[in-house]
C-alpha cells in the first residue's frame, strides 16, 4: 500500500544507513562499557608488547623489529574491536528467545539488517573505543606510520575486507543455529581457528613454512594478520594485489554460502515460543 515499487535506487541504501545510525545510537546507551573496553584493549596491547620486547630485544627476527611488532599488536587489537563476529551470539540469542519473529515480519533482507546492526556497533566501537585506545597506545608505546601511501590506502581496503570476512563468517555460523539450535561449539571451534590462523597472537611470518602456506590460503588471516602486515609494508607489490583479491574472493564465497544457507534456513525456520 505504502511501498513505492521501482522507486529510487538509493532507497535501500538510505534504509541501511538509517538502521546503522539507529544501531550506533543504541550502543551509546552502554557508555559505561566504553571505559572497560578501552582498559582491556590497552591491557592486551601492553602484555603483547612486553612479550615481543622480551623476545626480540633490540634486534629483529625475519626483519621484524620490536617497534614493528608493537604497531602490529595495536592494529590487530583494533581490528578485533571492530570486527563483526559478534553477530553470531546476537542472532543465536534472538533465535532462542523467539525475538527473531519481530525481525522477520519486517520487509527487510535479514542478513542485510544484521550487517547494518553490526556495522552500527562497529562504528560506535571505532569512535569511542578504538580512537582513544590508539591515541593512548601511540603516545605510550609509539606507533609506526603506514609504510607508504599505497600501504595506507591498501590498509583501508583490507579493513573493509576484514569487516566483511568477519561478517560473512559470523553469518554462516549464526545460520547453523537454525539447524542445530545452538552455536556454542561452532563459535568455540571457529574462535580457536581464528586465534591460530588469524595471526593476532603470532604473525604468520613466524609460522613454519607448511603452516604458513595453509594460513595464507584461509580466510582467518584477513581478520588480523593481513591489515597489520599491509600497514607495515610486509605485504606489498604483486603479493598485495593477490592478497586483496583472495580476501575479496573469501568474502564472495562466504557471502554466497551465507545467502544460500539463509534461503534454506527460512524454509525450515521454527520460530520459538508462543
Amino acid at each position: 500500500m505504502v511501498a513505492r515499487p521501482g522507486g529510487d535506487a538509493v532507497r535501500p541504501i538510505r534504509t541501511f544507513l538509517a538502521f546503522l545510525g539507529t544501531s550506533f545510537r543504541k550502543n551509546l546507551a552502554y557508555r559505561s562499557e566504553v571505559w572497560l573496553s578501552i582498559l582491556f584493549g590497552l591491557l592486551a596491547i601492553v602484555i603483547q608488547a612486553a612479550i615481543w620486547r622480551a623476545l626480540l630485544g633490540d634486534g629483529a627476527a625475519e626483519g621484524i623489529t620490536v617497534d614493528d611488532m608493537v604497531t602490529y599488536v595495536i592494529i590487530t587489537t583494533v581490528i578485533s574491536a571492530v570486527s563483526l563476529h559478534r553477530l553470531v551470539s546476537d542472532v543465536d540469542e534472538r533465535l532462542r528467545g523467539g525475538d527473531i519473529a519481530v525481525d522477520l515480519v519486517k520487509p527487510m533482507h535479514y542478513p542485510t539488517l544484521q550487517l547494518a546492526d553490526q556495522l552500527g556497533r562497529s562504528a560506535f566501537q571505532l569512535a569511542f573505543v578504538v580512537v582513544p585506545m590508539v591515541v593512548i597506545a601511540a603516545l605510550t608505546f609509539g606507533i609506526e606510520a603506514p609504510a607508504s601511501a599505497t600501504a595506507g590506502a591498501a590498509f583501508v581496503a583490507s579493513l573493509a575486507i576484514a569487516l566483511l570476512v568477519s561478517f560473512t563468517q559470523g553469518l554462516l555460523l549464526a545460520l547453523l543455529a537454525f539447524w542445530f539450535l545452538t552455536t556454542f561449539h561452532f563459535i568455540w571451534a571457529n574462535g580457536a581457528l581464528l586465534t591460530l590462523f588469524g595471526g593476532a597472537n603470532l604473525p604468520l611470518w613466524f609460522f613454519p613454512d607448511a603452516l604458513e602456506t595453509v594460513a595464507r590460503l584461509l580466510p582467518y588471516q584477513f581478520v588480523a594478520f593481513v591489515p597489520a602486515a599491509i600497514w607495515l609494508g610486509e605485504i606489498a607489490g604483486s603479493e598485495l594485489a593477490w592478497t586483496l583479491a583472495l580476501g575479496v574472493m573469501w568474502v564472495a564465497i562466504q557471502g554466497a554460502a551465507g545467502q544460500a544457507l539463509w534461503s534454506a534456513a527460512v524454509h525450515r525456520l521454527t520460530v520459538q515460543g508462543g
Partner: peptide
C-alpha cells in the same frame, strides 16, 4: 509478548526507522 521497539532508545527513534524500512 515481544517488543519491536528499540529498548534503549526514545520511542520516536523506532518510529523514524520504521519510516525508512517501510518507505
Amino acid at each position: 509478548q515481544r517488543s519491536q521497539l528499540w529498548w534503549d532508545l526514545p520511542v520516536i527513534e523506532s518510529f523514524e526507522l520504521h519510516r525508512h524500512v517501510y518507505d
